[in-house]
């Protein structure tokens, strides 16, 4: 009985500690974003005396000719386009890689792992993009995000496809389906759950990406939402309320994703935990 009380006590303490450690920073963002400029300058963890969240939002949006709106459009185009291509291309690779045993499979598997491990070489990538006249353009950055996201997505698809029985392929083949119909009309619908997982996980990654837009898409008119934070920093250095309102605004899309797709995100990010 005594041991039981003690374990409840440690449990409660651990819960309180983790709530403090993980929720205080978010509360701080919310509180600072709601303060007036003078009050936020004190950097204190306190309830705002004057609630100015809506004024701050309006002001952040209007800054620098509605740069945040442009950035949200850029980020949305970037995320949607790159995730679409990523899903399509990596599902095709995962499908053939899992189904067809060729002597190239070990080499392709090695490439997939290499793409996962090796950090991309920045300046030479810019050099290639310049050669293709894609440097500093949104399409260029989209292709970059697709390339860097392929490996992870292929691994997810391959693992999932392994669980789809081959009998389905055979039945479809007997019914006269060619490779394209087999993949798009038979396999693709069966992949639905893993497709959702890949979409959600990669969308969050691409949306939050800071390094690649910084390198491959310079320029204010091209800014993605993560770069607005970076570009506003000097401007807002004395206006913490606006900086934190900006943080708050760009956190909303991932938050919404998380609320609706919690299960898929968790499944995607923890896949491989049990199998290794």
């Amino acid at each position: 009985m005594k041991r039981r009380t003690r374990s409840i006590l440690t449990g409660t303490l651990a819960i309180i500690a983790s709530v403090i450690v993980f929720l205080v920073p978010f509360t701080f963002i919310l509180m600072t974003a709601s303060k007036t400029r003078q009050e936020s300058a004190a950097l204190q963890f306190s309830w705002p005396e004057q609630f100015a969240l809506f004024e701050n939002i309006v002001e952040v949006i209007q800054t620098r000719d509605f740069m945040l709106i442009t950035a949200f459009i850029n980020s949305t185009v970037l995320t949607v386009a790159s995730v679409t291509l990523m899903v399509l291309f990596s599902a095709m690779v995962g499908w053939v890689l899992q189904r067809r045993q060729s002597r190239w499979n070990p080499a392709i598997n090695l490439m997939v792992l290499a793409g996962l491990i090796i950090p991309p070489a920045v300046v030479p990538t810019i050099w290639v993009l310049q050669g293709l006249e894609l440097f500093g353009t949104l399409p260029g950055l989209i292709l970059i995000e697709v390339t860097f996201g392929l490996s992870f997505s292929v691994l997810m698809f391959r693992a999932f496809i392994a669980a789809i029985p081959r009998e389905l392929d055979e039945a479809a083949t007997i019914d006269g389906a060619g490779p394209i119909r087999l993949f798009f009309q038979v396999a693709f619908p069966l992949l639905r759950s893993v497709i959702v997982t890949v979409i959600v996980v990669q969308a969050v990654f691409v949306f939050n990406d800071f390094q690649n837009p910084l390198y491959f898409l310079p320029g204010d008119e091209n800014a993605t939402v993560q770069l607005t934070l970076y570009n506003f920093q000097s401007q807002f250095d004395t206006q913490w309320n606006l900086l934190f309102t900006n943080i708050l605004l760009i956190t909303i899309p991932p938050l919404v994703m998380y609320i609706f797709f919690q299960r898929q995100i968790v499944a995607g990010m923890t896949s491989g935990a049990v199998k290794g």
Partner: peptide
């Protein structure tokens, strides 16, 4: 004809090759 054609690799391979393999190899020279 295989039901799992090798050309399914091509879109991904083209991107991976031009934007990842080439720069990685080029980085050794640069």
């Amino acid at each position: 004809k295989s039901q799992y054609p090798m050309w399914f690799y091509i879109p991904a391979a083209v991107l991976f090759f031009t934007l990842f393999v080439v720069p990685t190899i080029a980085s050794f020279y640069f």
